[in-house]
């Protein structure tokens, strides 16, 4: 199950092992953990006092507002896709990035499939915990790269810096290169 981070240098596999905790799970003494929102709200001081990394994961129905006051204390926020067809996290990601100015890692977790990675990157995710297909085919940096390169053009302005087709047209009309 490859967790990758998208950086200026490209797609980098993440070596750190992250443990995703549910509402009742005990916090391990060591190791990076992703805790659910309620746990974070109840135990944030003790969680921050741990030596290892802490991130918060939001379920699909949990709002960006609910974490907005803590964003400067967080280096990882993860948004869960309970099914790939549940697209709430795309809007939550836009709000965390564009509304609340979150600059830390925004990670997609859950039913994260190759066919949806472009949307995730376009809405502000920069870390992808990609799920292996049921066929058992391996997910590698190369397959992720191929999925992200599927479309060379976009029509809309989203969070990512890609210029929309309308901007490319303007450049062409001005005599420049698209």
């Amino acid at each position: 199950m490859p967790l990758v981070k998208l950086t200026a240098a490209g797609i980098e596999p993440v070596e750190t092992v992250w443990t995703r905790l549910g509402g009742e799970d005990a916090v391990p003494a060591t190791g990076a953990v992703l805790v659910p929102l309620a746990r974070w709200q109840a135990e944030k001081d003790s969680l921050l006092a741990r030596a290892d990394a802490v991130g918060v994961w939001l379920a699909a129905g949990e709002t960006a507002d609910s974490i907005s006051g803590d964003l400067d204390r967080l280096t990882v926020v993860a948004l869960d896709f309970p099914a790939f067809s549940d697209g709430r996290a795309y809007s939550t990601a836009r709000l965390l990035r564009d509304r609340f100015g979150y600059r830390g890692e925004l990670r997609a977790i859950g039913d994260v499939l190759l066919d949806q990675l472009i949307q995730m990157v376009r809405t502000g995710f920069d870390a992808l915990d990609v799920k292996a297909p049921v066929s058992g085919a391996a997910v590698t940096v190369e397959t992720i790269q191929a999925a992200l390169s599927r479309y060379s053009l976009v029509y809309q302005v989203a969070h990512d810096p890609r210029p929309p087709v309308s901007a490319l047209r303007r450049r062409l009309a001005a005599g420049g290169q698209a």
Binding site: G87, Y90, Q119
Partner: peptide, 13 residues
């Protein structure tokens, strides 16, 4: 049509 084509935020409504 162009705006809605592969809109990254609104493809899994």
């Amino acid at each position: 049509r162009q705006w809605s084509t592969f809109h990254p935020e609104f493809t899994y409504l």
